[in-house]
């Protein structure tokens, strides 16, 4: 039992990540805002707001709303709350200073600061100054609740971070494990290490397939296509092709030791090229994935402190499961070799 502690750890981590990943609510946010007027400088106008997970009614007393244009705020005269997720904001006439786009901000102590970038568009031409500038009363911008960040378009699918991304981490970890075993094989020509390397590549490909399929579905809902022309996506697809080639190469050599030697060498090549494809090329190119081509990385934007422990748990959990499965496959292989 004690020998298998890491398997229990893996299961626990995975259970935690699935539970926390699905049970933690999404932070409140603004889904849409509609302006009643095309021209906002002539007369007062209203903005109808639809929120998600918001508590407009409960927080009615402390609810403020204002529009931002070129860093200058214009406060709502009156906030008319319909229910928890609906509110109508009454604004004074206002002309834009710079772009004819306004960012909508709302604040209450319970929901914190809600921001919708470029929420309202006006047909008015840009003029010299805002007619009414105010100082919005914001006690604290801190959000004092435990929730995942609200992101436009992503919404709840931000939880896929705990499901889709760990597939790739598991694949890369298994391929690294395979690489380590390739080196161990080449040091002493012990065929067992080659078997380990082979089995972990097979499991890595399963995780890779799952990563591709889940990524494809997620891409359909956020980027609008099943397969986007993305460096990282193409890089992983090609990595999988090169490891499939590794399996083909293994099939084409009869002698066990020769097969192990030749395929280990090819596998080392494939691994180095994977590092270039997944690690280096996306940095030189634009990519839709976070952390590449000017997109913010996991560390500073997409992965906030609420998500980080869950994400790491999921990654570690799936890596352990992957190593576990490859270990089972290896033991089966040994059993088969011993009896045939």
């Amino acid at each position: 039992m004690l020998r298998n502690w890491w398997k229990f750890l893996g299961v626990l981590l995975l259970a935690y990540s699935i539970y926390a990943g699905l049970a933690t609510p999404l932070a409140p946010g603004i889904i849409s805002a509609k302006s009643s007027a095309t021209y906002t400088s002539d007369s007062t106008f209203t903005v109808t707001v639809f929120g998600y997970n918001t508590r407009f009614q409960t927080e009615q007393s402390g609810l403020h709303a204002w529009l931002m244009n070129n860093d200058k705020p214009v406060c709502a005269i009156r906030v008319e709350v319909i229910d928890e997720t609906h509110a109508v904001l009454h604004f004074p006439p206002v002309a834009p200073i710079k772009d004819p786009l306004f960012t909508l901000k709302m604040h209450s102590t319970g929901d914190g600061l809600l921001v919708m970038e470029n929420a309202i568009w006006t047909a008015d031409t840009v003029t010299a100054g805002l007619t009414q500038v105010c100082q919005p009363k914001v006690a604290s911008e801190d959000q004092n609740y435990h929730a995942y960040p609200f992101r436009y378009i992503l919404y709840e699918s931000i939880r896929n971070l705990f499901l889709h991304v760990p597939m790739w981490f598991a694949m890369i970890a298994l391929l690294s494990w395979s690489l380590y075993n390739n080196f161990r094989y080449l040091r002493g020509f012990n065929i067992n290490y080659d078997h380990r390397a082979h089995e972990s590549v097979k499991v890595a490909l399963v995780f890779g397939m799952l990563g591709l399929i889940t990524g494809s579905i997620w891409a359909r809902s956020t980027w609008g296509a099943w397969w986007v022309d993305d460096t990282k996506l193409n890089g992983t697809a090609i990595t999988m092709l090169s490891y499939l080639a590794y399996l083909v190469l293994r099939n084409s050599i009869e002698d066990e030791q020769k097969r192990a030697r030749v395929s280990s060498i090819y596998s080392i090549f494939a691994y180095v090229m994977m590092l270039v494809l997944i690690g280096l090329l996306p940095r030189l190119n634009d990519s839709l994935h976070p952390g590449n081509g000017g997109n913010p990385a996991f560390s500073n934007y997409d992965l906030d402190n609420t998500m980080r422990p869950v994400f790491y748990a999921a990654v570690l959990g799936w890596i352990i499961i992957g190593i576990w499965i490859s270990g089972i496959r290896y033991r089966m292989r040994k059993l088969k070799e011993a009896h045939t």
């Binding site: 092709l241 090169s242 080639a245 190469l249 090229m273 494809l277």
Partner: peptide, 15 residues
Amino acid sequence: LMAILGFPVLLPVLM
């Protein structure tokens, strides 16, 4: 076999 082994591995070079 040469094509199967070579194309994916040398794709970064080609790109």
